[in-house]
């Protein structure tokens, strides 16, 4: 495989992640939280035919989206809320751990959804590509 195509594949990792962030953010503004699942599945299905880490791309997408969103809210709120809510959980009692937890939980389900979409796509690939992986 050429260096060029490797680079392309790496780039696709980021493209797909960015697409997921943008689409998921837009849809979540109007739809319930779980709309992220079909979004991630569809992106997993339609993009990045040669990507190796669909879970990671999905995970990072929602991790960044939710954590940054939470971080922004937390900044505007002077951490009043986060410092209370974090005490519900057996985690270090600071805002950052709540922000990271939020990102992690979003990332987890999104990564799984994208992985599922990605695997499903592979049923429709030509034989050689199946073996190529």
């Amino acid at each position: 495989m050429s260096t060029n195509s490797i680079r392309k594949r790496r780039a696709w990792f980021w493209y797909r992640m960015l697409i997921c962030i943008v689409v998921s953010a837009t849809i979540q503004l109007v739809a319930p939280w779980w709309s992220l699942i079909p979004v991630a599945m569809l992106i997993g299905f339609f993009t990045a035919p040669m990507n190796k880490s669909p879970f990671l791309a999905g995970f990072l997408a929602l991790f960044l989206l939710w954590a940054c969103w939470a971080f922004w809210i937390d900044l505007e709120n002077n951490s009043i809320l986060s410092e209370r809510v974090i005490r519900l959980f057996p985690l270090p009692h600071n805002s950052l751990s709540l922000i990271l937890l939020t990102g992690f939980l979003g990332g987890l389900i999104n990564g799984m959804a994208m992985l599922t979409g990605d695997i499903f796509r592979r049923f429709f690939l030509p034989e050689e590509e199946k073996y190529y992986r």
Binding site: Q28, W66, W69, A70, I73, L81, L105
Partner: peptide, 27 residues
Amino acid sequence: YQNKSGEIPPIGKFFSPIQGFWNNAES
């Protein structure tokens, strides 16, 4: 993520920064 189990709130609904508890943070 969608259902409350025991004391644990529905994770997805609760943590979503758009609809969950984060939305109760007042600027």
